[in-house]
Design a binder for these strands. Structure first.
Lengths: 219, 219
DNA sequence: GAAAGCTATGTGACGTGGTCACACAGACGC
DNA sequence: GCGTCTGTGTGACCACGTCACATAGCTTTC
């Protein structure tokens, strides 16, 4: 009780949940690990402790689109879907950084759901959050131009130095378009003076211009 | 105990859940009623008893896309999102037929979540199902051609007589495209002999041709 | 440190899809 | 019969996705 257990890193859990979860050993996976891929059977419920995992939907042509990102304390909804519906994974999860996580086996998961209000809130909350962001994604993909989504991406993911360190291919995946389109759009945005770009970096020159692009197609 | 209560129409509920739910009065709404629209506050958790409700996402240009359809026994996930996350609705739900439903107020909803495993399963199941279908939707809009989605729609929604009674505008909404595109695609499909179409009706002429169109862009 | 190889990027051509602005036709009321 | 409404057809145009390359910048290897 005096030394730190891994469950301390998960917010909002109650005592019985912690007791059960502390019997599980967290695992560590290196950057680039594919945690699961389409068609694979579900092993259990996954809670992230640290690191960053991206979940992508993969198209037949190899093009893929970022469904959501899993941050520490959050869980991977894909696994829940499988546990509740019995279906296999339809998306692929990749560790973008070194990641630590706990895998909660199927039966422990259900026991916790019944016994721990805190765990229920955790699972429900994760569900609601993902659902919300997936609806946002559908809205973006079907109603916003590539330019607006790209501008939003640049603003969202850029560091405090006003730089975004991503390749065009990564950006394309993140907003669900093709690499070539990113190339052309970046050129256009560079011509208009709102950004500059070179190999692997985009530099923000005019924040307000980017903001206008985002608003432009949003309403 | 001898006469039928409305909760009998909801499968998988246990005794405590039924007892609580039977204190609520189901309501009936006519066809065309808008149950909620973007920005509205969440009133409670909604369970359908009979009828058909469609939930659409609405774009800035008036174009809209069908997120999912709520069938009897199912619940509307939008409301759950609001209850759990506190956010307002971002989509619009319309009764496509006369519909009967129960509205479970916020506090009753949470009481049930804690007390009834059956209710939990109901809510979780609905969640998982919607999530799955939303992922399917994302996959469809971003990786399938309009032609493939249209073919799938015609096969899915047509009656046993091989006819689909929908206007082009309705089809456009259902698969998330514009009306004009439907018009052109239907023409093309009619030229190739797979369907015939007139005002408000599409008649299937060659089922296997349509199936090939669906497969064509799926893999 | 030059050759070889890989990764990131630029570009033209082409087809599909979405938008706009109409024209037109069948259905319905009065 | 005359408007009106709703559903449909069409041409022009632009944004987007795909294919097939060309090029440029890093890295590895000997």
């Amino acid at each position: 009780m005096s030394w730190t257990k891994h469950t301390d890193e998960i917010a909002g859990l109650d005592a019985p949940a912690r007791a059960l979860l502390d019997t599980l050993t967290p695992m560590e996976v290196p950057k680039g690990t594919i945690l699961f891929c389409p068609g694979e059977a579900v092993k259990g419920y996954v809670v992230m402790l640290s690191g960053q995992v991206d979940v992508n939907l993969i198209g037949p042509n190899g093009r893929d689109i970022l469904l959501y990102r899993v941050a520490p304390g959050q869980s991977c909804i894909q696994s829940t879907l499988g546990l509740l519906g019995g279906d296999a994974y339809t998306a692929e999860a990749t560790a973008e950084t070194l990641a630590r996580l706990v895998l909660i086996p199927r039966d422990v998961f259900f026991a916790l759901l019944d016994s721990s209000p805190g765990f229920r809130r955790l699972v429900f909350g994760a569900f609601a959050e993902r659902m919300q962001s997936m609806m946002q994604l559908i809205e973006n993909v079907s109603f916003m131009t590539v330019e607006a989504r790209l501008a939003a991406l640049i603003l969202d993911r850029s560091g405090p130095d006003g730089c975004l360190h991503m390749t065009q291919a990564e950006m394309a995946t993140a907003i669900g378009t093709a690499r070539e389109v990113i190339s052309r759009r970046l050129d256009k945005m560079a011509q208009s003076g709102s950004v500059a770009h070179e190999r692997g970096v985009v530099i923000i020159l005019d924040r307000s211009a980017l903001n206008e692009l985002v608003q432009g197609a949003a309403f």
